[in-house]
């Protein structure tokens, strides 16, 4: 691993795409405004100039065809990386993703595969307009055949994205908007890969564990640090791949601590927290000291942004839930 430089998560995404384009002539980027404009968040900044309009391609404004055509590009032998401008704009493409991306390999009995990546800004917390702050990961995780990754650090953004592009299966790559420019970290230079399906231990601890991902990692860590002041060592695990989930690490920390809290910024009901709690029951039932808890957003549509900070889990609300989990007899 070469020494890296301090970068934002967004710059790490750009660097991963740059490396992929440089390393593999099969890689092609497609999406809306990703060319000369460099993407609405600038995730593809400079790549159009460097690799040209044949490999960094502005498409018509049509999400279903961006994914549908990416399927065709992949079938023809390329490694397309599609950008959907915001996760809320993924919905027109869900038919392509749920009906085709996820099952080309299955239906063709392994003959025709679609190793593509669909990247998109994900989650809330940046005072964006309506439908620009969605956390719809559960829909994707519930679809067999797909893989889903969510980085929370610049190094993971680069490493997971390069693994996703290399993976034989289609990967939905969710980039937490709130962390795009708010976190900085060391990013290894050159080809740096982080395996899909392996969680990251953010903080060790034996008194409790918080399972989280994306923009929920920083406030979860904040809550764990506050619990430390109360004398509790709480582990924080960034799942970073939501499909497949790292069941081994979930089970290990549930057994090790006996006290589990899951935090997500997607609505509670039918959210991934339910699945993670179920895994804890399956893997660690006899080790649990307290009922596993979930901190999620309520079952409402994502609200207008003037109230989003109240709506989203914060360090303080996670800490309150953690206290309850830790003090349960």
């Amino acid at each position: 691993m070469s020494p890296g430089t301090e970068k934002t998560l967004l710059a790490a995404v750009t660097e991963a795409l740059d490396v992929a384009l440089a390393e593999d002539p099969r890689v092609l980027l497609l999406g809306e405004d990703i060319g000369l404009n460099g993407g609405v968040f600038r995730a593809t900044d400079g790549l159009f100039e460097k690799y040209g309009g044949e490999r960094v391609v502005d498409t018509p404004l049509a999400e279903s065809a961006i994914v549908g055509a990416a399927i065709g590009l992949a079938l023809s032998g390329l490694r397309p990386v599609a950008e959907i401008q915001f996760m809320g704009f993924l919905y027109p493409a869900l038919d392509q993703i749920l009906s085709h991306v996820s099952r080309f390999r299955y239906r063709s009995r392994g003959r025709f595969t679609v190793p593509l990546v669909v990247r998109m800004p994900y989650g809330g917390g940046v005072q964006a307009p309506e439908l620009h702050a969605e956390s719809a990961e559960a829909h994707l995780v519930h679809t067999p055949g797909l893989k889903v990754a969510v980085p929370s650090t610049p190094a993971d953004a680069k490493g997971l994205l390069l693994s996703a592009i290399d993976d034989p299966d289609p990967v939905l790559f969710l980039e937490p908007m709130r962390l795009y420019r708010s976190v900085k970290g060391e990013v290894p230079a050159g080809v740096h890969k982080v395996p899909l399906g392996k969680a990251r231990i953010v903080r060790e601890g034996n008194d409790g564990v918080i399972f989280c991902w994306g923009a929920m990692v920083p406030p979860s860590l904040q809550a764990a640090r506050r619990a430390k002041e109360d004398g509790f060592d709480v582990a924080v695990v960034d799942l970073r791949t939501l499909s497949p989930l790292d069941r081994e690490t979930i089970g290990k920390f549930a057994r090790q601590t006996g006290r589990v809290l899951v935090v997500h910024e997607a609505p509670l009901t039918g959210g991934l927290g339910a699945e993670i709690v179920a895994i804890c029951q399956e893997e660690a039932f006899w080790h649990l000291e307290a009922p596993p808890q979930r901190v999620a957003v309520p079952d409402t549509p994502y609200p207008a942004f003037a109230v989003e900070e109240d709506y989203l889990p914060q360090g303080a609300t996670i800490y309150r839930a953690l206290q309850k989990t830790l003090k349960e007899p």
Partner: peptide
């Protein structure tokens, strides 16, 4: 020969994409 498409019209973007990929390569 791709597996037959069942959801209506969804294969049309695939055809466009395969053609694009062939041309690109």
């Amino acid at each position: 020969i791709l597996p037959p498409s069942v959801p209506i019209a969804t294969q049309i973007p695939h055809a466009a994409g395969i053609g694009w990929g062939l041309k690109h390569q």
